[in-house]
Design a protein around this nucleic acid. Structure first.
Length: 431
RNA sequence: GGAGAGGUGGCCGAGUGGCCGAAGGCGCGGCAUUGGAAAUGCCGUAUACGGGAAACUGUAUCGUGGGUUCAAAUCCCACCCUCUCCGCCA
């Protein structure tokens, strides 16, 4: 499944160890670099030895074939090769276990942050890049979306908890319709105006796909797994979209490739007990429209700006106040080299909340997933991948309820969504 | 789920133990022929990793992983996928 080299370019680690360690900074916490380098050396030595013996065996085998054709005795050579075969098998075993150990470490090394990423340990070191719009002015205390939603009869957390468990929600009536309006609006925008190809992928994928995008092996605890099949529910459409081209060499003429997909996302949210327990903010299942770009390495940072703008345009058309922040080294995801978060204004809490995350993964995922292109010079190279939510639909739903709420508890529907809501202008309590 | 057939290079397709990284064809590239083209002819045409300044060279790869053997596309085992029929089902 995995071919060599995977993960961070092992050659880069080998040749510029100190620089890699420094750039990884706080991210590279528990990596045994000495063991990694030792295993790398061991692997190359073993490989050399095995290849030499195999070459020897092949020559001898050809001789044996000739001897037998000429009806001459071949026994001594055959005997000799028996022991060579045993040595090859032994070395191959060693090589296999060496590579497994090496992979274990290497697959757990996070991506190198881009040089433009601010250094810091947590979200407090993130840097605001820009703001758009302004918060709504209310002459009344803003209510949280769960109160609005339950009062309007469009959100039902109680029944969801009974049928499934905590962190699930039932959308009903105009609520269900609003969720569907949002996803259709977003997909239409990205396919018709931004040039993305719409994809409707499987929501269940295998281990290789999860490893390709970086969810595995480190984050298995955050995934829902099917008991009998070693398949997992996707935590984001990034996984199937990026894995569309796993183990492929894509044609240069097709680049950049832009895909969008709607999908539900499933996350166990291990370790987040007690956080965001009320409302839609943190659910085990939520809907999202995702954007994925496969880019030439040279232009991937321009593509990151483009991608972020595409995600922002959804918020702009919904007239939702937001800001863009650059995540610092300590707040970025495992696979990302640089990430912009889009944070939408939530008046009830008086805070900006993440509603989209747009990242450049450089060659981190393509190296794991074996996604290349072939240039005009005939050489193949790993592509860069990028992805971003555009947007997380549940959180957009939250933002609309809270920002468009009226004094009487009704919610105005943003104009761009009305065609998707059969012309409905306002959500009122259903009778 | 049961029974059967099959998975070989960009594509089609031959190949049941060695001279097979793989015939032949198509496609593609170059050259010749032509005023130009078609047709024709000749030559070339997989990928990855390592060595070498390069020419070149070593190893691996015939769905995947194991095994047998001095030697595996070829034999054995397991798994995956595709197709046909049956069952079930939206």
């Amino acid at each position: 499944m995995l071919q060599w080299p995977v993960m961070l370019d092992i050659r880069l680690i080998r040749e510029r160890t100190e620089e890699v360690k420094a750039r990884l900074g706080a991210r590279g916490l528990n990596i045994d670099w000495d063991l990694l380098l030792k295993l790398d050396q061991e692997r190359r030595d073993l490989l050399n030895a095995v290849e030499e013996l195999r070459a020897q065996r092949r020559t001898a085998s050809d001789q044996i074939a000739k001897l037998k054709r000429d009806k001459k005795p071949a026994e001594p050579l055959v005997e000799e090769m028996k022991s060579v075969g045993d040595r090859i098998a032994a070395l191959e075993d060693e090589l296999r276990s060496c590579e497994a150990d090496l992979n274990n470490i290497a697959l757990s090394i996070p991506n190198l942050p881009h040089e433009s990423v601010p250094i810091g340990v947590d979200a407090s070191a993130n840097v605001e890049v820009r703001r758009w719009g302004k918060p709504p002015a209310f002459s009344f205390p803003a209510k949280p979306h769960w109160e609005l939603g339950e009062a309007l009869g469009i959100l039902d957390f109680e029944r969801a908890a009974r049928m499934t468990g905590a962190r699930f929600a039932v959308y009903a009536g105009a609520g269900a319709r609003l969720e569907r309006a949002l996803l259709n609006f977003m997909l239409d925008l990205h396919t018709t105006e931004h040039g993305y190809k719409e994809v409707l992928p499987p929501y269940i994928v295998n281990r290789a796909s999860m490893t390709g995008t970086g969810q595995l092996p480190k984050f298995e605890d955050d995934l829902f797994r099917l008991a009998d099949d070693d398949l997992m529910l996707i935590p984001t459409a990034e996984v199937p979209l990026t894995n569309l081209h796993r183990e492929e060499t894509v044609s240069e003429a097709a680049l950049p490739l832009r895909y969008t997909a709607f999908s539900p996302c499933f996350r166990r949210e291990a370790g987040s007990y007690g956080k965001d327990t009320r409302g839609l903010i943190r659910q085990h299942q939520f809907n999202k429209v995702e954007l994925v770009t496969f880019s030439f390495p040279e232009t991937s940072y321009e593509e990151l700006e483009v991608l972020a703008r595409h995600a922002e345009s959804v918020l702009q058309r919904l007239h939702l106040h937001y800001r863009v922040v650059t995540l610092c080294t300590g707040d970025m995801g495992f696979a990302a080299a640089k990430t912009y978060d889009l944070e939408v204004w939530l008046p009830a809490q008086g805070v900006f909340r993440e509603i989209s995350s747009c990242s450049n993964f450089e060659a981190f995922q393509t190296r794991r997933a074996g996604i290349r292109y072939k240039g005009r010079d005939g050489k193949s190279a790993f592509l860069h991948t990028l992805n971003g939510s555009a947007l997380a639909i549940g959180r957009t739903f939250v933002a609309i309820l809270e920002n468009y709420q009226q004094a009487d508890g009704t919610v105005i529907i943003p104009e761009v969504l009305r065609p998707y809501m059969a012309g409905m202008e306002r959500i009122t309590k259903e009778t």
